[in-house]
Amino acid sequence: MKNNRLIYLIKGELIRLHKYKVTTISIFIAIIWSVLLFFVEGDIFNSLLPVLILVDATTMSFMYIGSVMFFEKKESTMSSMLVTPSKDSELILAKILSNTIHNFLSTALIITVFVILKDVQISYLLIAIAVILVTLYHTSIGLLLSYYQKDFTTMLMSVMLISFALLIPTVLFMLNVLTGDIWEYILLINPIQSANIIITQSFKPITLDWKYYFSLGYLIISGLLIYRFLVLRNFKNYAVSISGV
């Protein structure tokens, strides 16, 4: 029953993503991206595809989990969930895992389109690991962000501000405003930079350097810590506050 319940909750979340049109929107966005990229050629295409996958696995993860949380807040359904035998961890994991499955499928759709149409050379295993890990990580952050935002608009603003703040150092480094090897290390603490590395290095030719392994380990360890000590620990207070009872 215990494991069945988690699977059942995930299934329920996926059904609701469909019922609340989140799945339709994500497929629609994936198709738009695919159409746009279809007309891009050569080096620009090669550099744009990883960026697109990165945006899908990071920013879109924030958006999708944010929309789910605010739908629930609007309908106060969390209170009904709190009085079922489901554990807090099951409720959170169901949201994180369903969002990851959902996001993974939309990213897989984009990748499949380009593997077929543009003969993109990619390691399926590495890109699957990268997309799943990055989505898991950013969905957890998105869940945490939703605890502290009043509504979806405020959450969007926060996501933009955070993404912008995280991107600044990377851009400054690329523009040689920040120079020196030390920045190469410091920037790896930025989860978006780590995500970028594990996604980019999944494209062929595969040359996995230390940065890949560091980023992989960093995302796994910091992701687990964020889940355990921030997302899970603060869930009950948040759930009670939005339960509306």
Binding site: L9, I15, E75, S80, T84, P85, G244, V245
Partner: peptide, 26 residues
């Protein structure tokens, strides 16, 4: 538990709501 305000997933049918919650119990 029945809360004062009606709490359901509005874009699901009544039966889908009931079945979803019921399957969480033994």
């Amino acid at each position: 538990v029945s809360f004062e305000m009606p709490i359901h997933f509005s874009k699901m049918t009544a039966m889908e709501n009931i079945r979803f919650f019921q399957n969480l119990y033994k």
